[in-house]
Design a protein around this nucleic acid. Structure first.
Length: 324
DNA sequence: TTGTGTTTTATTGCCTCC
DNA sequence: GGAGGCAATAAAACACAA
């Protein structure tokens, strides 16, 4: 062993006793019998989880020496010296040895020293080989486990993404509805403004509040829609075209009474105590773009297709790293 | 047969625990 | 300080297509 480690130095007296009690005709039974080991470890799961080498061999009647790469007799000599390591030569374990080790691993993936020695003795391997096999097996198990975890996470992610996309579509639909409704509202305001203007020309002392039409005709809606689409040609959501048509256009100075953060901002304009000009300004600033930003106003440059990537680059799904 | 990719066995160095 | 675990890695063994 080039590593300079000393293996098997612990519990040597216990191991000797175990080795002396371990007859070759009793393959590994003592490994799995509850209470058969003086180890207090709870990892020995009792007879129900026992695995015997005979079981693994399937009662095929194969000669036991078949499983001993380094055939040796239980003659009391130093076991470690009986497994000469041949540097530069690696030997694969036989299928039966691997099968048995697998079963043992299923029972308990950690290897107590006693178990290691007994396994090694019964399989005709060096304890060190058994330890290495368990170590590598644990590494493989961990890798597999990580892959499974990753698959689960990816499935969850895809699920969430799909949900988010459908919600995003629904959101777009609702935004379009809001746009149509706001068009209607603006049309109402315009109709009311025109009637007020003519009334003012006729009766200058007329009170400002007038009843407005309950609904706009289809033609009016389409007309307003055309205006609205005109509005969208402007980078600003506030249309000077629309305002300049209004008789109460106030040189582009908009009311600052209502702030976007004000929750009452879009509520109940008809019950407002504002003056007519204030009301007009209110109407002009109704549903400003920062409440319902247009899709083209939203910067998705780093969020392809939609905003459902949860802040992560799409190609960066493998960023998750897990430690166990 | 040979080149190449994958799997398995083994080593090394570092870390933690007792 | 010794024993053992783990990550990283080397290298032999194996699988397989060309």
């Amino acid at each position: 062993m080039a590593g300079g480690r000393v293996y098997g130095g612990r519990n040597s007296s216990v191991l000797s006793a175990l080795l002396q009690n371990q007859k070759s005709s009793e393959p590994l039974d003592s490994l799995f019998l509850s209470g058969s080991s003086n180890s207090s470890s709870s990892s020995f799961l009792g007879s129900r989880s026992m695995v015997s080498f005979e079981d693994v061999r399937g009662g095929s009647g194969l000669n036991r020496s078949l499983f001993h790469q380094y055939e040796h007799e239980d003659n009391g000599e130093d076991d470690l010296d009986e497994y000469p390591h041949q540097p530069g030569k690696k030997r694969r374990l036989t299928a039966d040895q691997v099968r048995f080790l697998e079963k043992s691993f299923d029972v308990e993936n950690k290897l107590e020293p006693e178990r290691k020695v007994l396994l090694a003795k019964d399989l005709g391997l060096q304890p060190r080989q058994v330890a290495i096999w368990f170590q590598n097996r644990r590494a493989r198990w961990k890798t597999k486990h990580l892959e499974k975890d990753y698959e689960v996470l990816q499935a969850n992610y895809n699920n969430l993404k799909a949900n988010c996309e459908s919600l995003s579509k629904e959101n777009d639909k609702l935004k379009a509805e809001v746009l149509v409704l706001s068009d209607k509202l603006q049309l109402k305001e315009k109709v009311r403004g025109n009637s007020e203007l003519s009334d003012t020309n006729q009766l200058s002392q007329e009170p400002p509040h007038k009843p407005i039409a309950d609904s706009a005709s289809e033609g009016e809606v389409s007309k307003v829609s055309a205006v609205a689409s005109k509005q969208e040609d402007h980078s600003s959501g506030r249309s000077d075209i629309f305002d300049s048509d209004s008789p109460h256009y106030t040189d582009g100075v908009h009311s600052s009474l209502m702030e976007p953060g004000d929750s009452s901002y879009v509520l109940e304009p008809e019950q407002s105590d504002l003056s007519q000009d204030e009301e007009d300004n209110f109407s002009k600033s109704l549903l400003p773009p920062y409440i319902f930003p247009k899709l083209e106003d939203v910067d998705y440059s780093d969020t392809p297709a939609n905003s459902c990537n949860f802040g992560f680059p799409v190609e960066d799904h493998a960023f998750w790293s897990w430690s166990y």
